[in-house]
């Protein structure tokens, strides 16, 4: 079932047209990988989806009903949650507090810490996230565990559509595997997940579809079962550049994709 659909979204920042008519839909239990070089418009699209940027034109529908988001808070109320790397957790506070950040359960005037710890553990167990104790401050946990806690919060706070911004960047291989496993768990639970990533291998490993953006437009959509890393990289870079590079170096596609992150957004 289609949960979220956006059509012909346009957004201009001064003289820069960041989105030039983007359409995208996602189903329940589907994982969509959103790829593209820097400046392609991924971040702006994510910001539109989570309510922090209002599009100049275009329509959004949630469960078939028209949707207009005024703020990230509004988006969260509609079940759209975004997980930013490093912008999600309070290091000094423990795991349970971070899972409930901003929405602590209360008993009278007092925060119900026992309930919070118990429920945090339940959520972590459900998502097969391994944390020694929910009393630990998150500052001391590994990058992968932190990312998983941030995702667990998005899900626990009612996120049916979870937007992940570079969830595997700056993590070790084992931690990356844990995060990818968690994305698969979310999919099995029927959560719709949009993953923004520069890593083609990771996207191909978890996504059902890959949406590639370039210069504010959707350059192509591929089913992961009928595409290859080289094909996706070709879309990201534009066919001419991809040909030149794959013939010239012949290196792994991921290295090409992440090696060519050129900052092109002069207006930002």
């Amino acid at each position: 079932m289609r949960v979220l659909e956006v059509a012909d979204i346009r957004r201009r920042f001064g003289g820069v047209e960041a989105l030039r008519g983007v359409s995208l839909g996602i189903d329940e239990g589907e994982v969509v990988g959103l790829m593209g070089d820097n400046g392609a418009g991924k971040s702006t699209l994510m910001k539109v989806l989570c309510g922090s940027v209002r599009p100049d034109s275009g329509t959004m529908t949630l469960d078939g009903k028209p949707l207009s988001l005024r703020s990230p808070r509004d988006a969260a109320a509609h079940g759209i949650a975004v997980v930013y790397q490093d912008l999600a957790l309070v290091d000094q506070r423990d795991v349970a507090t971070n899972v409930f950040l901003g929405r602590e359960p209360r008993r009278g005037l007092v925060v119900d810490r026992r309930l919070m710890r118990r429920e945090a553990r339940t959520v972590l167990d459900e998502l097969s996230i391994r944390i020694p104790s929910v009393r630990l401050p998150v500052g001391g946990l590994s990058g992968g565990q932190r990312q998983c806690i941030a995702i667990a919060r998005a899900v626990h706070q009612g996120g049916r559509i979870v937007l992940l911004d570079e969830p595997t960047a700056a993590l070790g291989p084992e931690q990356q595997a844990n995060v990818l496993k968690l994305i698969k768990t979310l999919k099995e639970r029927g959560t719709a997940v949009i993953v923004v990533s520069h890593n083609v291998d990771h996207v191909l490993a978890v996504a059902d579809r890959v949406v590639v953006m370039r210069a504010g437009l959707v350059q192509g959509v591929r089913d992961v079962h009928s595409t290859s890393a080289a094909d996706v990289v070709g879309l990201i870079l534009g066919s001419v550049a991809a040909d030149a590079i794959s013939h010239g170096h012949g290196g792994p596609a991921t290295a090409v994709a992440s090696g060519l992150e050129v900052e092109t957004r002069g207006a930002r």
């Binding site: 912008l87 309070v90 507090t97």
Partner: peptide
């Protein structure tokens, strides 16, 4: 709890709707 979250990571607090 909001005071601790605000001082610990203001951006995270704002993102969490505090």
């Amino acid at each position: 709890y909001d005071v601790y979250a605000t001082g610990g990571n203001m951006k995270a607090a704002l993102n969490a709707g505090i």
